[in-house]
Simulated assay, not measured.
Amino acid sequence: MKALVIDDSRTMRRIVAGVLKNLGYDTLEAGDGQEALNVLESESDIALCCVDWNMPVMDGLTFVKEVRAQAQWRDITLMMVTTESEHGQIVRALAAGAHEYLIKPFTPEAIAQKLDFLGVLPAEEPV
Rank of each mutant, 00 (worst) to 15 (best):
P122H: 05
P56H: 08
V120H: 12
L115H: 03
H87Y: 04
P108K: 00
D75P: 02
R68P: 02
A110T: 09
F106M: 15
P56S: 07
E100V: 03
V91N: 05
M79G: 06
Q113D: 13
C49P: 02
E124T: 00
V81Y: 12
A69C: 05
Q89E: 14
V127L: 04
P56N: 10
L121R: 09
F106T: 15
P105V: 09
A112S: 11
E125G: 07
V127R: 09
A95V: 03
R74L: 04
E125W: 03
Q89P: 07
D75W: 04
P56M: 02
L102W: 04
V91K: 07
L78E: 01
A96N: 13
I111N: 08
D75T: 15
E86C: 02
P105W: 04
G88Q: 14
T82N: 02
P108E: 00
W53C: 14
M80H: 00
H99A: 06
K104I: 08
R68T: 01
E86V: 14
L121G: 07
R68L: 01
K65H: 10
D59Q: 01
A93Y: 03
P122G: 01
Q89T: 12
I111G: 05
F117G: 10
I103F: 03
L115C: 08
G60P: 11
L94E: 11
F106I: 13
E124V: 02
A93I: 08
V127M: 10
E66S: 14
I76C: 02
L102M: 04
G60M: 14
E125N: 08
G119S: 01
